[in-house]
Nucleic acid binder design. Structure first.
Lengths: 145, 145
DNA sequence: CTGTTAACGAGAAATTATGTCAATAAAGAA
DNA sequence: TTCTTTATTGACATAATTTCTCGTTAACAG
């Protein structure tokens, strides 16, 4: 299992390529939305993101649409606060799990957590064809402890 | 690890005791809401539940309030569809995980999945004080496969 | 540079969730 | 059983959240 810490920014070119790969266009608005999440390891709600970005002339509609697109690209994952708040945090594309601080909501990504044994066991017992899982850990980050 | 299958209804008395234990009152409306979820292993959104229950004179407000109460009692857990739909499914109080069918949304509960090893590993690597986790499996149930 | 078309902003509209308050009824005591 | 207390209910208003429409703009391929 590996833990990846935040801070690995995508270059403008990488970001553009990421969008264009799936036929999406790379616009200043989309870059701004991504940069915002990239700069907030503790995530943002759409409302929070909109509040900040509207000051830069980016509309609420665009924030919603871009968050949706980034989710599809796998760059944004959402965690649900213990109280059901919808927060989105930047993340690397692909399968990974988030470790979220219940105090400051900072999220750290961890990958390669192997649950295949568990999945096989469940498949045997239930007859389900297990395809995947969603796993979130929560606790207190070092700064908040 | 144990898998529990649905179908174990709570008697009226058990249900009453469950509410009264925490100072809540046992009302016909609350029973109706619970019975509805109990009868739907694939869960319901609040909107769906309201649509059904309003025909029986139960208001939307009450549905929201009761779903909230049942959640606090641990009898109702919510799963987020791959598309972010808020579904609630009946469940036993206490820690457990849900196995959700991506086709029909039927949910089966499994308990005692031991992730303590993983949690310790993560704690070591990140410095987080891991307090718990939220785990959801998804796949195809035997009927849909 | 040009044409095609996805993406944009503004605002309406739909959906989802919470708050208010008078009337009602559950729970325990008498 | 009857009474008293007080949580719960329903109707409605309100707030919060998300999606849709449509005319305009600009990204990107050729």
């Amino acid at each position: 299992m590996s833990i990846k810490n935040e801070g690995s920014l995508l270059s403008k070119e990488e970001l553009k390529a990421l969008f264009n790969r799936t036929g999406l266009r790379f616009t200043p608005q989309r870059e701004a939305v991504w940069r915002l999440f990239e700069a907030h390891p503790n995530g943002l709600t759409v409302a929070e993101a909109t509040a900040i970005l509207s000051g830069r002339g980016i509309s609420q509609t665009t924030v919603y649409r871009t968050v949706g697109a980034l989710q599809e690209l796998g760059c944004l994952k959402w965690v649900h606060n213990q109280l059901g708040e919808h927060r989105f945090v930047a993340s690397r594309p692909g399968h990974s799990h988030l470790l979220v601080c219940r105090s400051c909501a900072k999220a750290v990504e961890c990958t390669d957590c192997d649950l295949s044994v568990l999945e096989k066991l469940i498949a045997q017992k239930t007859g389900f064809a297990v395809e995947g899982h969603h796993l979130e850990f929560y606790g207190l980050c070092p700064d908040c402890a």
